[in-house]
Design a binder for these strands. Structure first.
Lengths: 243, 243
DNA sequence: CGGGCTCTTGACACAAGTCAAATCGCGTGG
DNA sequence: CCACGCGATTTGACTTGTGTCAAGAGCCCG
């Protein structure tokens, strides 16, 4: 059953900026269908020219770059509302891969209609640029994190960032949210070895800061976590456009 | 003396995509003036809402984020042709600072005209998004570098990247190009300590790979450098739009 | 019950950070 | 014209965070 943009459950959430009815109608035309993928599927391959672009409706995923020697750098996690494939649409090819960690439902757009969006809907073009600029900002933060923080701080910071996003999406219940990734995924995101990630998680657990187990992140002390992460406790997710 | 966009010396270089006469004419209207700043000036401050956006005509600079404890993460270097302030234009505020390392000449645009660019010049809007997407890609690469490479590899990779950009801009003469930064700048970019950066540079020097001295980067063996950096030797700069 | 993932833990090695001090280069002022 | 001072670059000695190797424990599924 295909959801109409008008009644899209994501669109109602306050994290997403509101559109006028005519704007929603345009997006509806832009949308060409829905895609369901199972856990583990690769949505986009580094170097490929995907003919399709997606907005995540449900499920979680990972963006990553493959490196020499078989290891990879996780760029960030993909949550509902995220737009996937902008690079393939704007540049020629994807510069990273995208993988579904859980089963996912995606809203599908056709890449060849992207230009009409720039021509006829400058507001949406602006939104796309906004998304790219925000992504750039987030990567800048991640870079600073890898460059200047130790393992404990990195993990704490990752948890805070994820928690803020999860909260904005309504995924958090009593301080806990689903986080169905592997320790290896986190290690690959933070530039740490699996072993060291594991030991650092243990420390956070024993210090009563946060417990991440069985795919659920449970924040025991948001204050302590933020202190370690060097982040203000009042951080909120910024409202973002939903494409 | 203000250069007209039509006779802009940068625009002639082949690294930049060509515009039609009418497109150049629009950019000319968009341009509100030129700015010359001396070495050491701060062009944009993290958190500020700059009313102006720039394209670099001459000189070199640095983008960086300030961190706790007084140190900083250099995001990347700023060379002629680079667009500065996109974040201030699209998002509300800059997320990083920009500093002039040498004296610089900048082409000035008014932020409040940015929307008219999206409305009336979809090609330019597309270009801006393209720039943001490329920036995102480069930061992704940088992230992978910090996450997975050791000091020697990082420096080698930084040199190769810089060299490719410098070559495309015609800054390279007999394998050498001006690179007027401090070792501390490079250290801050690569997430290394100054001391370790210095020792690693020494190694590159003694191994006959590259010498960086007195603000000049001299590549002694591009092959060795690329091998260390794990980059193909045939890498070229991609053509990019000049805003 | 067995095979294959994850997750845990311990022991050890090494890359890189920190601290401290010497040297070099350069502009300024006596 | 030389002495001084300050910032940048070098170098050495020591410390430590993190990676690597290896092996065991927990858990799910066929």
């Amino acid at each position: 059953m295909v959801v109409s943009c008008h009644s899209c459950p994501l669109r109602r959430k306050s994290v997403f900026t509101q559109m006028t009815d005519s704007e929603v109608a345009f997006m509806q035309k832009f949308k060409t269908g829905e895609l369901e993928v199972e856990a583990g599927s690769t949505l986009m391959m580094e170097g490929s020219k995907s003919p399709q672009l997606y907005t995540v409706l449900e499920g979680m995923g990972l963006r990553y770059k493959s490196m020499a020697a078989g290891d990879r750098q996780v760029i960030n996690i993909v949550l509902p509302g995220d737009f996937v494939g902008l690079q393939a649409g704007i540049m020629d090819e994807m510069q990273h891969s995208v993988e579904a960690t859980t089963a996912m439902t995606l809203c599908v757009f056709d890449r060849k209609n992207l230009w009409s969006l720039f021509r006829d809907q400058p507001e949406r073009a602006y939104d796309l640029t906004w998304l790219a600029a925000v992504e750039e900002h987030l990567l800048g933060e991640a870079l600073a994190m890898l460059g200047h923080m130790d393992g404990l701080q990195r993990i704490a910071r990752a948890f805070v960032r994820i928690y803020i996003r999860g909260k904005a999406l309504g995924l958090v219940q009593q301080g806990a949210m689903p986080l169905p990734y592997k320790q290896q995924d986190l290690a690959d995101a933070l530039g740490l070895s699996l072993v060291h990630t594991n030991k650092t998680l243990k420390k956070l657990r024993e210090d009563g800061v946060a417990v991440w187990r069985n795919g659920v992140l449970d924040i025991k002390s948001y204050e302590k976590l933020c202190e370690i992460a060097q982040i203000e406790t009042d951080g909120k997710a910024v409202a973002r456009p939903l494409i």
